[in-house]
């Protein structure tokens, strides 16, 4: 059921959308299932203004300091960070793999671009995830309509610009439908230029 609206104090800078912060951690080696993924997903905060965002963010652990197999998800209010959610089920995500050491800076740039509406794709963005893994960190940006090539191209180009990535960084797109089929988030992806 929908959560109540987040109140914004007079004078606060309201964001275009309200967002929820989620955290999840998976025991390494354990088979991921929809059920245990759902159980591991914890809602840790909600914000609707720039001031509320910074109040949460300044208390959040930076990706570089998180244990492996942890994920932070920042999603628009009403959208659960699951493939099966109504807003996600026809969507997909851009995947950017980062070598260790880049995640905290890139993640911050990613969030600021999302909250600041720099993607200019209307309501297409659902949320973003930073996934801390053993040998790499992965940023993903989820959008509603995987088939909308104009939108996914625009998201990719904005991502490249705001993350300030090295020019040879490979970006991959994966539909949530494909993730559901092969039960994996980052395997069997479609490299940029498909």
């Amino acid at each position: 059921k929908p959560l109540p609206p987040v109140e914004v104090k007079p004078g606060d800078h309201r964001l275009q959308f309200t967002y929820n912060i989620w955290f999840s951690r998976r025991a390494p080696g354990k088979q991921a299932t929809t059920q245990n993924y759902d159980q591991n997903l914890k809602l840790i905060g909600r914000f609707a203004s720039v001031e509320q965002f910074w109040a949460y963010y300044s208390r959040l652990v930076r990706p570089a300091d998180l244990n492996s197999h942890s994920d932070i998800h920042i999603f628009k209010d009403g959208i659960k960070p699951m493939w099966e959610d109504a807003a996600n089920k026809n969507g997909g995500k851009w995947i950017v793999r980062l070598r260790k050491g880049l995640a905290s800076r890139c993640w911050e740039n990613m969030i600021l671009a999302m909250l600041g509406e720099q993607f200019m794709v209307g309501d297409e963005i659902c949320g973003a995830v930073i996934s801390v893994r053993f040998q790499e960190d992965i940023i993903s940006v989820w959008n509603r309509t995987a088939q909308d090539t104009a939108t996914t191209t625009r998201i990719r180009d904005t991502l490249k610009r705001v993350l300030n990535l090295p020019p040879n960084t490979v970006m991959e797109y994966k539909t949530h439908n494909d993730s559901l089929k092969d039960h994996s988030s980052f395997r069997n992806t479609r490299a940029d230029g498909y």
């Binding site: 004078g11 800078h13 309201r14 910074w54 740039n109 600021l112 600041g116 509406e117």
Partner: peptide, 21 residues
Amino acid sequence: GTRIIYERTFLMQMRNSPLAK
């Protein structure tokens, strides 16, 4: 309505605002 757009520099300035503490 109008889309609320914030540039990165503005958001970064707001980080140090006492209101965000």
